[in-house]
Amino acid sequence: MILHIDMDAFYASVEERDNPSLVGKPVIVGGSVEGRGVVAAANYVVREFGVHSAMSAARAQRLCPHAIVIKPRIEYYAEVSRQIREIFEQFTPLVEPLSLDEAFLDVTGSEDLFGSAAEIGRKIKYRIWSELKLTASVGVANSKFVAKIASALKKPDGFVVVDADAVQAFLDPLPVGRLWGVGRVTGQVFDRLAIRTIGQLRQMPLNRLKELFGTAGEHYWQLAQGIDGRKVVPDREAKSISNETTFAEDISDPAILRAWFVDLVEQVARRMRRHDLKGRSVEIKVRFPDFQTVTRSLTLAEPTNITRELLEAGLELLFNRLPQRQQPIRLLGFGVSRFDGSEKSQQLLFDQPDRQRQQQLDRIADQIAEKFGKSAIHRGTRLDKSRD
């Protein structure tokens, strides 16, 4: 059985925990309007005004002028995330982090020690609250897809268990938009076909879905049947480490895309260094509103886990090697593969003295995050970065 654990409004909840006077007030974690900032997290109070993550700070301010805006403390959130992961790993070594605030856990082999998957989920949820004073929503199911849907259904502080023999009954009544990959454009196609629930989609012939959506049609059909055979893969066993985010609203502003991309790269680089991994291949993934997904990759001269080097390579792919399209972006992802721990003397994007400085900067940032939970060092481009 698989757990999907998703922290509730993570960044904002951490800020509320550390400053209780914020509780009950509309809180935004993100950049400033002047700096063309973006909303990194929105607590549940401000969400009632229509504010959500990935929204521009300017629009968020128009929707909720009295919101309290707090500058992100990414290193601090990473430290809290590490504490949460330590709790996970006391119950199972099979932990696959998706980002700082969510992860999949395979607890199949842990049930003899700690009880059923549902019991383990409740124990983890209790530990996160009792030790860190943060709430998590938990989904329990026999697949990643179903567990992820379950964790989102009763947020915040949700807990949903889907037994193996109840998957179809669970999925059928849900809106078709719950399926991974069904965005605004695809949803409009389903709406014209009067397909509004997963159950209705499940009744459609597979060939018809392929005619309409190509290979994505089979993807929709399998998910509607509750079919998802992906395993939980810990970072240390993965052939690649990646992170991606699907925006609540499609984004076209390059400054906002760049800010989110920096955060993705930093999380991936930190996970690589945690497991002493260096990668030679960098890849980005971009999904457009029409569900067309484009990937681009670049092979580096030598393996690296230096944040700046990975970032430079990723930005080259994102802004210079994607097809020139006018469509905004729905999903943005970054990953590294072809791991190789050996050091070589070749040069990459920088001369060797500069590489040594960058490695030292990464080590310092990681050590400070590990020991103190926050850093005095801030990378030049973050969620409040101005357009260059």
Score class of each variant (00 low, 15 high):
A103Y: 09
H4K: 14
G333D: 03
I284H: 10
A365R: 12
G226F: 12
F319M: 04
D18A: 03
P175A: 11
Y44R: 06
L171A: 07
I149P: 07
L98Y: 14
K344S: 15
L322F: 02
G158L: 04
M55N: 11
L134V: 02
H66A: 11
G333V: 01
D290L: 14
D6S: 12
A150P: 05
S21P: 02
P97E: 13
W180G: 06
A42Q: 06
T197H: 01
V162L: 05
I70C: 07
N142V: 12
E79S: 13
G158D: 00
S21V: 06
G314R: 09
M272Q: 08
S137W: 01
A313L: 10
A365E: 08
A118S: 15
K155A: 11
I120F: 10
R236K: 05
V33A: 11
G109E: 00
Q188L: 14
H4I: 10
V146S: 11
H52I: 06
T108E: 15
E16F: 03
E111D: 00
G37E: 06
S386T: 03
I128A: 05
A58F: 13
V294N: 07
F372L: 15
F104G: 06
S375Q: 04
T215L: 06
V294E: 12
E309N: 01
V265M: 10
Q200A: 08
R271V: 05
S32E: 15
P205Q: 02
A216K: 13
R355S: 12
S386W: 04
D18M: 08
Q225P: 00
I68A: 02
I120E: 11
P175I: 10
C64A: 09
I198Y: 00
P234L: 06
A9Q: 14
A166E: 15
L105E: 13
E75G: 09
L300P: 09
A103Q: 08
E15M: 01
V185K: 10
S386M: 05
T304E: 11
E75I: 02
K385S: 14
N43A: 01
R379W: 13
R208E: 09
R382P: 07
A78L: 04
R274K: 15
T197G: 00
D276F: 05
A103R: 08
K239R: 08
F88P: 03
Q267K: 13
T245Y: 07
Q327S: 04
A216W: 10
P20Y: 00
Q292M: 05
A150G: 04
I68P: 03
A67H: 09
I368P: 00
F261I: 04
G35K: 15
F145T: 03
P303T: 12
K210N: 11
Q347D: 14
G50V: 07
R230G: 09
P234C: 04
G373W: 15
L63D: 04
E237Q: 06
D366F: 06
P303K: 07
L22H: 03
K25C: 04
Q188G: 15
D384A: 02
Q267S: 14
L94V: 00
G24P: 02
I251K: 04
Q267P: 00
D165L: 08
L349T: 03
F10E: 08
D253P: 00
I74T: 08
E211K: 11
